[in-house]
Design a protein around this nucleic acid. Sequence first.
DNA 1: TGATGTATGTTTGAATTCTAACAAAAGGCG
DNA 2: CGCCTTTTGTTAGAATTCAAACATACATCA
Lengths: 230, 230
Amino acid sequence: MEQYLPALRAAALFDGMDDNRILSILRCMDARVAQRRKDEPLLRAGERAQCMGVLLTGSALIVQADVWGRRNIMAKLTPGESFAEPFAAAGGAALNISVVPGEACEVLWLDINRTLTLCPSACEHHARVVRNLVSVLAKKALKFNEKITHMSRRTTREKLLSYLSGESMRQGALNFDIPYDRQQLADYLCVDRSAMCVELSRLQREGVLTAVRRHFTLRADALPPKDFLL
Amino acid sequence: MEQYLPALRAAALFDGMDDNRILSILRCMDARVAQRRKDEPLLRAGERAQCMGVLLTGSALIVQADVWGRRNIMAKLTPGESFAEPFAAAGGAALNISVVPGEACEVLWLDINRTLTLCPSACEHHARVVRNLVSVLAKKALKFNEKITHMSRRTTREKLLSYLSGESMRQGALNFDIPYDRQQLADYLCVDRSAMCVELSRLQREGVLTAVRRHFTLRADALPPKDFLL
DNA sequence: TGATGTATGTTTGAATTCTAACAAAAGGCG
DNA sequence: CGCCTTTTGTTAGAATTCAAACATACATCA
């Protein structure tokens, strides 16, 4: 388990804990590591999530997909990020999402209930893990909140601008990369890819932004007021 | 504070705690009660949420609104439910939502940090509150997840069916009431009200459901397979 | 370098949604 | 009951989005 410490130190769930504490917690939470190839889902919709996952290496998408290939991308995971916590923390609720690797990856499975119900005071590390879990869950709710904010806009143009200006602010620059390709971005915003490309082209023609693959540059001064407040 | 115990006993945050414990926790979390008239927001977008709220009486909507009156309803609160927890638990993040009363109501403000950072072991009740908070946050994330599921559908018809079948399952009946009027439902699904009414009428003409004000009846057998899986 | 597969951009007609305005129904209250 | 307000339903034209197909650009690897 020691080999994964570099990844775990960066995980929000283990924030403020030294290596020994982390290893101790891993034992308490019955931690298990699993490898997945690119085509093997980490979790499938319909399953019950008894454990939460922490991505150690690689990347993965949290998606809802139907049989016609319609896809709703909830989030993209990078190493150190966790997933399925809300389901595991809500008593092993049935998943309505799948988690699919973007490439081969490694995951850590953690039994949440061990920290919540068992040995509550036995090891004091638990208090810290539970507090970190509170923070992780809160941030996940805020992430969903943000996605809803983007999706709630009525036009593709507004959805794009809402997402892109959000990313720009988060990264603190008008010049930034996004983690999605065009199809993935369309699936994140829940719009048609080709219609989104049309809108991106229009925004570029109008001088509002430049978009080269995953790299974007916003020109805030070029936006008509309609797209902002007031 | 004792007068609010009936409402508090029903709150998920105080699950499994007797009256004395609840009162003790209220003191630890620096609980304060506030009244609001129908037109006074409980929270406004832009503010920082240092405290989480628990609705004691009345009802309220969590909304995102822009200056043109476009409204995105995130959820409707009933007594015992809490709000702004994700913002408060994420270190007092700036709200991107407002909380507006549907009628006059009373709220309890709780300082989350008191349970998370201060007197961590002094009173053992804290462990229970924090565990309850984990559960409350997890359920909120699942609620947002559900809203995203409905919104991710591409047509108004599919959004309606996704929401209504979800409510039907949640309430365990084909016959059920929803908490929203037509305008609120449209704002929850982020579609135009009149277009939604048209779609509701069509669904009724097709015999898929009946809709009388807030009361709905689904006729599962009348749905063409396209609207379900496979 | 050339071939292949993937990602991105563009075009078109069909379908859907928005907008605004108005009509009808329901609820509250003197 | 009659009046008023709020809610719900309907219509029609304009605007937007979808869907499918194709063209172009880019990346990888033999």
